[in-house]
Design a binder for these strands. Structure first.
Length: 288
DNA sequence: GCCCAGGTGAAGC
DNA sequence: GCTTCACATGGG
C-alpha cells in the first residue's frame, strides 16, 4: 500500500541521516525504517514524499506526526538569528527537519550514544533489535525486520547479553533505566504535558541520562523546541563561531544558546550539528 | 601505538 | 560551583 504526501522544504536524506534517529537504511529503493511497529519505505521526490507500508493503513496520522509533514519549516527558520553562521547552516542543509520519535526508543538509543560515533550507535542498536525485538510484517521478499525492544523486554535481558551487543559500560545504564520505565517509576507519556524544565529534570533522574541525553529526548521525541543538546560537535561549532579563542563552560554555552538562538534553539542546533559534521568547512570561521 | 566519538557519574577541590 | 577520571569499543 502506498501514499503520496506533498511537501515543501523537506530534505529526507539530511533528516534521516542527521544523528537524531539510528535505524533507517538507505538503498536504491529509498529509506527503509520502522515507525510504531510498522515497516515503512520512504522515497523523496522534488515536491513529495511517497510512503509504502507492508499492511493496509487507513489513518496516516502516525506518519504525519513522526515526519512532521504539516510543519511550516519557513516559520521555524525565520526565528533563527540573522547572523553569518546560521545563514550558512541553513543554506547548507535547508529542508532538514526534526522528527517526532517514540520516547522510549529515543531515550534508550541516546543512552547508548555516549562517546560513540553515529555509525557505531547504529550498529549497537541494530544488534539489540535483531536479538531482542519482536519480528514485524514486511512486504513479501523484503529483508526481515524487528521492532525496537520494549523496556519490559530489556529488563528481561541479562547485562551480559546486553554487553554482547557491544554497548560496553552503557549496558547497566540501559537496563536500570528500562527497570524504572517498566515499573512505572517514570511515565514517559506524561512528560508530554509538563514544562520543558520539569520534563528535563525527570529524565535526568534516570541512570545514564545527563543534560545532553535529556535534551536529545526532549527535542527528538517530545518536540520541546528550546531543548539544546550540546555534544562535542555542537561545542566545537559554538566555540569556533561564537567564542573564538575561549573555552566556555557548558553552563555558559547553555545560557548563550537560550538567549541567542531564539524559541527554536533546538532546531538551530540540529542545523549546526549536521553542517559541521558533514562538512567541517561549511560554517564561516570568524578569524583564523 | 595514538586520539576521538551526539556523555555520565563519582570523587576531589 | 568546577575539573578530572574511569567507563567499553571501534574508526581513522
Amino acid at each position: 500500500m502506498e501514499r503520496v504526501f506533498p511537501v515543501r522544504d523537506y530534505d529526507l536524506d539530511a533528516t534521516l541521516a542527521s544523528g537524531q534517529t539510528f535505524r533507517w537504511r538507505r538503498d536504491s529503493a529509498g529509506w527503509t525504517g520502522i515507525i510504531g511497529g510498522r515497516w515503512i519505505r520512504l522515497q523523496a521526490d522534488a515536491a513529495s514524499l511517497t510512503a509504502r507500508v507492508a499492511e493496509p493503513v487507513t489513518d496516516w496520522k502516525w506518519l504525519e506526526d513522526y515526519l512532521q509533514i504539516e510543519l511550516d519549516l519557513s516559520s521555524i527558520l525565520a526565528t533563527f538569528p540573522d547572523d553569518a553562521p546560521m545563514r550558512a547552516a541553513v543554506a547548507a542543509c535547508r529542508g532538514l527537519r526534526l522528527l517526532r520519535q517514540d520516547p522510549w526508543e529515543c531515550l534508550a538509543s541516546f543512552i547508548l550514544s555516549s562517546t560513540k560515533q553515529i555509525v557505531q550507535i547504529e550498529q549497537i542498536i541494530a544488534l539489540v533489535c535483531e536479538r531482542f525485538g519482536d519480528p514485524l510484517i514486511v512486504p513479501p521478499g523484503d529483508t526481515p525486520a524487528r521492532a525496537f525492544p520494549s523496556a519490559n523486554r530489556i529488563v528481561a535481558v541479562s547485562e551480559a547479553d546486553l554487553r554482547a551487543c557491544k554497548m560496553g559500560f552503557r549496558a547497566p545504564y540501559l537496563r536500570a533505566t528500562a527497570q524504572r520505565v517498566a515499573r512505572g517509576e517514570i511515565d514517559l507519556e506524561h512528560l508530554r504535558d509538563v514544562s520543558t524544565e520539569d520534563a528535563r529534570a525527570a529524565l535526568m533522574e534516570l541512570p545514564g541520562v545527563g543534560r545532553k541525553i535529556a535534551d536529545c529526548v526532549l527535542l527528538f521525541a517530545y518536540g520541546f523546541p528550546s531543548a539544546f543538546p550540546v555534544d562535542v560537535w555542537v561545542m566545537k561549532a559554538l566555540r569556533r563561531l561564537y567564542f573564538p579563542r575561549r573555552r566556555p563552560a557548558l553552563a555558559k554555552v547553555h545560557r548563550f544558546a537560550a538567549t541567542h538562538f531564539g524559541p527554536n534553539a533546538g532546531y538551530a542546533q540540529q542545523y549546526l550539528f549536521h553542517c559541521i559534521r558533514t562538512n567541517p568547512d561549511c560554517l564561516p570561521c570568524p578569524e583564523s
